[in-house]
């Protein structure tokens, strides 16, 4: 039996559910408390407000409301992006970095689980080199070098060694 969340005594017979920003909230009340809050089955009460009242007392969840962020360059808000699905300017990627990173990573992980690098394609001229890719490349070359030494392929090993030291300078 569910107990009324407001008086915490009587049986809850009225159950409200509100889904906002993918966060589901539920309130269970007895008839007495419901009518005291101005809710009856006929009158359409403001359910979120009612839930707001209840959440102050008990349901408060840590992830209930995501804080909004504004891009200092173009003025676009994270909430604008959420409703329109489009960003305002290139700087949004910096302003909303952790959230966009999570979003893009989730697209990627459904495709290639375990993929580390978000970008591993073409780079425009003059752009800073992608360090994470550079490190992965060095790591792979070092493994090849160990194998070459084990197999006594010394010419190959010498080539790999100079390639690694060239990359490390960059």
């Amino acid at each position: 039996m569910l107990i009324c969340q407001i008086c915490k005594k009587k049986q809850a017979t009225i159950h409200l559910t509100d889904i906002h920003n993918n966060v589901k909230k539920e309130v269970h009340m007895c008839e007495g408390c419901a009518s005291e809050k101005g809710f009856s089955l006929q009158s359409a009460a403001d359910i979120p407000q009612l839930l707001g009242l209840a959440s102050k007392k008990k349901v408060a969840s840590p992830q209930a409301v995501e804080e909004d962020i504004v891009c200092p360059v173009c003025g676009q808000r994270w909430s604008d992006f959420n409703s329109r699905g489009r960003l305002g300017c290139p700087n949004d990627y910096q302003a909303f970095e952790p959230r966009l990173r999570k979003l893009v990573e989730s697209q990627l992980s459904s495709w290639h689980p375990g993929e580390v690098s978000l970008h591993s394609g073409k780079v425009p001229p003059g752009a800073p080199p992608d360090l994470s890719r550079q490190l992965t490349r060095i790591h792979n070359l070092e493994r090849e070098l160990r194998q070459a030494v084990e197999m006594e392929h010394f010419e190959e090993a010498a080539r790999l060694k100079s390639e690694i030291s060239r990359l490390k300078v960059v």
């Binding site: 489009r86 893009v104 970008h119 394609g121 001229p125």
Partner: peptide, 30 residues
């Protein structure tokens, strides 16, 4: 793309790649 990139600076970040209005095109933009 190479010819235009040598004349105009494209929005790019080492983390995300080529930056696009919708994040579903980000990275290669391809």
């Amino acid at each position: 793309d190479n010819a235009i990139a040598s004349r105009l600076a494209f929005a790019y970040s080492p983390l995300f790649g080529y930056l696009t209005s919708c994040p579903t095109n980000v990275g290669t933009g391809l």
